[in-house]
Structures are given as C-alpha cells and as structure tokens.
Design a protein around this nucleic acid. Sequence first.
DNA 1: TGTAATTCCGACAGAATCGGTCGTATACTA
DNA 2: TAGTATACGACCGATTCTGTCGGAATTACA
Lengths: 152, 152
Amino acid sequence: MLKLTKKADYGLMALKYLAEHPETVALSAKDVADAYGIPAQLLAKILQLLTKHGLLRSHAGMNGGYALARDAREISAYEVIHAIDGPFFITSCTKGTKSCELTPSCTIKEPLARVNETIAGVLKSISIQDLAEHEHPAGRARETQGLVELTL
Amino acid sequence: MLKLTKKADYGLMALKYLAEHPETVALSAKDVADAYGIPAQLLAKILQLLTKHGLLRSHAGMNGGYALARDAREISAYEVIHAIDGPFFITSCTKGTKSCELTPSCTIKEPLARVNETIAGVLKSISIQDLAEHEHPAGRARETQGLVELTL
DNA sequence: TGTAATTCCGACAGAATCGGTCGTATACTA
DNA sequence: TAGTATACGACCGATTCTGTCGGAATTACA
C-alpha cells in the first residue's frame, strides 16, 4: 500500500492551515480540527508531537494554540511525516540494529534503499508553503522531475 | 512508516531468485522458501498472486513450479508490489472514486499525488534484473545501517 | 482570585491490517 | 494410481492504527 497514515495526513493538513493563516498569532487544535472535520483530540496529540520535534511552537492557556516554529518555506513534508510516523523505510525488515535476522538473503534491500532515499529526497523538496499555495504547479514539477531521473 | 509489506519483500526476493536461476525450468514455492527461510505456504500464496497477475507462469504436478513469465529485465519492482499489495497511494483517503468524504479540504493530496507518481516512476524503473545483478561484497549487511542514519 | 481555555500526557479500546497456518481441492507426471 | 505441486478459501494471533477518555499543568482575563 505504501501509504501515509492518517495522522501524517492530518499533520500536513494542519501545518498547511497554519501556513494559510499567518496573520493569527496562534490557532488552537480545536480550531484546526473544526476547519477540517477531523477528531480534535487526535489532532491535538499530533500537534503536540510536531511541537516536540520543533516544527511548531505552542502556547497554553486562553487564546493559546500553535504556530509554525519557522517559515512555511523551511518546513518540509519529510520533517512532518518523520515527526509523526517516525523514520520510514521502504524495506520491511529494517529492525534498527540487526539488519535482517533471516539470512544474508535480503540483497534486494540495497537497491530499494536507494528508492527510499529518492522518496525522502522528494518529500524533503516539498515545503509546507508548497502545500499552502497549491495553485502553483511550476515548482514541484521541476523538483520531482529531476529526482526521478536522478535514480538509476 | 511508508514501508513495503513483508509479502511484497518476499515477492521481490522470490522473483530475484528465479532471475538468478535461469537455467532451471521451474522452481517450486518450497525451493524458494527454503532458500530464504520464508514460510513456504505464505510464499506459495504470493507466487500464486504473481501468477494471476501474469508475472509468473506456473506448472502443477511433479517437477512443476514457477518461472518468470517474461525476461527479468521486463518485470519492474512496481508491478510486483502492485500485484501483491494492490495499488498504493501515498495519501490515505483515496477511496477510489470519491476523493475525500470529509470536506473539500484535502488540498494537500494534489501535491502529494505528484510524490506518488514519482515513487511509482522510480519503482517502475527498477527491474527484477537490477535486483538480481546487484553484486554485494561481504559485509554489505552492515551497510543498511548506514542508510538508516542517512535517511534521518 | 477564580474560571475558562488550552496545551500536555498516559492509558486504553475498537477496528483494521498483516503475517502466517491449515485443510482441501485440483492438476500434472511418472 | 501414487506422489508432487499449485490453487484457494477460511481462519487466527499479533501488531498497528485510529480515536476516546480522564486528568494535570499552564495561561489569560474578568
């Protein structure tokens, strides 16, 4: 399936929303959740994660909420996904230290690791800003195109 | 996480193994499973899937088994993954026809769809032959660990 | 000072998916 | 006919994902 979790989707949507409202000082989790119809408590936890990873700045109390910790241009989709879903690997048996317990068989993973890098590269090239101003196909076409040809 | 399922991994490994043994007429699921220490019955089902999708040709009975339906150069990793795990979308809420039931909110999916295409493109550019040809010097197993840190 | 709004955090339950097994039917070969 | 192998469906345990609940700490404001 190779798909993002809903949490990662929600996180990206939330950051995009924040990027689209730069005038406001901070938006609460509930604000964003209501705007998109996603479960508020779930989104709250996601935003907390993003805060812990330094992508958001939070402020408790009345009129508190979240704001981007950096310019939307300087937050990549990769960072968001990584913060929420953890490090991702296209190969399934990368269990941290021990590479592959089965056999020395998993030679397929070396080529696939390159795919992994490519995906990471593409995601790193996409900023929250790109998501927010999605009426603007020029930039991303350039980036993705180059990365495709870059591999193999 | 954005990772392949073990089934897809197994499928790629099996096809790679078949590509590495072009001299044999056919290899049984058990042969391949034993070579890699994969559960035989599970691999059998995977190979049946690949057969149904036209990537393998099967032959029942004694000395039967599976063989590549085409040249290893003409079977892409994409086809294998697609046959086993189904169509993959990086966005989680692409439920076929209706784009996103929540709101017209999921504007993030349009840019991410490009990422999806990119990934598909990379996977399509990798053939089973590429996997089989890959020469792996001793101690290569450790190297996946290096890639782990690289993607962080 | 008190209250409301809000972040923060851990635990947990339901659902879905995944990995793997079992049993059986079918096809082929010798 | 016996043995080997694919084909296929049902099922189960484990893991992961999604979402909820409850409570504690923080902050603004009346």
